[in-house]
Amino acid sequence: MIELKSVTKRFGSETAVDAISLTVNRGELCALVGTSGCGKSTTLRMINRLIEHDGGEIHIDGRPIREFDGRVLRRRIGYAIQSTGLFPHWSVARNIGLVPRLLKWPAARVTERVEELMALLGLPVEQFADKYPAQLSGGQAQRVGVARALAADPDILLMDEPFGALDPITREGLQVELRDLQARLQKTIVFVTHDMDEALALADRLVVMKAGRIVQQGRPLELLRAPADAFVASLLGGDDRGLKEAAITPVVERMRPLSPRLLPQARIAREATLHQALAMMFRERVERLAVVDDEDMPVGEISLRGIVGAGLSEGRDR
């Protein structure tokens, strides 16, 4: 668990972070969003003491981080950044094994851990272990960056726009992988991004910052439905907010049991989002879809009315 209590950071006369308070629970993915220079990266880097905070307190698992030696603290916290920061003169395997070696793990255990992580991130050992970072594609390099951050099995992971420099397709693929990984590993993750779709798709808790302060925080749906002010509303997509909400709401939430009426021809998977269901209706020129499970068996149906109207007030109450 990470707790920030009225944390402040000044650079000269400028206040970069102004008395922010924030709690990230164990196993939660917290996304910091905001315009450039709003203090989100500074906040992230104060957590592993790459930047020292001037005021307030930061606690990790109940202990103030100032009690730890900076290096010891950083070895306990995974760290992944946009430029990957891979060492160009080290092979992939050596890069991933960096923190375990800093922690003086025996060599055999480091090798074992590196191979385990490469498998976890879909990097075949025999193909990638001896490659150098310059020989990797952007997506592969970023996977290695994430593997390196996870190497010593830290409870906490800090990620500073880790997918920011990738093309949209690679980025989406890695987002899906990160979500699957997080479902398995249950790390406490603080994630800085300026890509709102990425934040909405990944975050359990969304924190909107502006000029060093937190404007609003909460679950993505809460923020989408009740933005605190015009800034949050426009940051979350302005008039597109409804569609963004549809993009993070699964079909099952608005699904109704199969009616006695004729089953619709067009079908949509149970795991799909309302956004995808809408797109399907638009494409097929229909108002009803059959919802199917993995075996393509109908389990319910969803209607345009169900998506846009009937469920909404109900959804708010929940």
Partner: peptide
């Protein structure tokens, strides 16, 4: 490259380690 040095420090390398190894 600054990103490499930032990562080195962020991983918990000491100043001496960053200089000698990176």
């Amino acid at each position: 490259e600054p990103g490499v040095l930032e990562a080195a420090r962020g991983m918990g390398m000491s100043r001496g380690q960053v200089f000698r190894q990176v």
